[in-house]
């Protein structure tokens, strides 16, 4: 108990839980990770599609990103069909590593 930061003990009777106003300590740290990872999850997934639409020269979406070839694939196909799944695995890896570390820091006896 002594190794916990003092501010992690909330005043009694305060049971507020709000994703946008996380409780100090463990929960705040975790919510920061969640924000970072969710942002990159959304940017890599939907941001890329918006980028494709933005750079498209024709209604079908033909543009610089579809002209490039990568691993034999048109780049947009390779990115969405292959790479994004790899990126999801990386995000899970980062999240798990962060949370493992956070749990160790807040739970010194275990």
């Amino acid at each position: 108990m002594s190794s916990r930061p003092p501010q992690s003990d909330p005043p009694a009777e305060d049971y507020r839980i709000n994703f946008f106003r996380p409780r100090p300590g463990y929960m705040r740290q975790k919510v920061i990770y969640i924000w970072v990872l969710l942002t990159s999850w959304a940017l890599f997934t939907f941001g890329f599609q918006l980028l494709l639409a933005w750079t498209a020269g024709t209604p079908q979406g033909e543009g610089p990103l579809t002209e490039i070839t990568f691993f034999g694939f048109p780049l947009h196909f390779w990115y969405t069909g292959h790479f994004l799944i790899v990126w999801f695995i990386v995000l899970c890896f980062l999240f798990n590593t962060f949370v493992d570390r956070l749990t160790r820091a807040f739970r010194p006896r275990k």
Partner: peptide, 20 residues
């Protein structure tokens, strides 16, 4: 290419589930 939305939806959902 539109069908890749299925592939991405059905894998990316696990990230959302895990994180949130």
């Amino acid at each position: 290419y539109f069908a890749l939305a299925y592939v991405i939806g059905w894998t990316g959902g696990y990230v959302l589930l895990l994180i949130l």
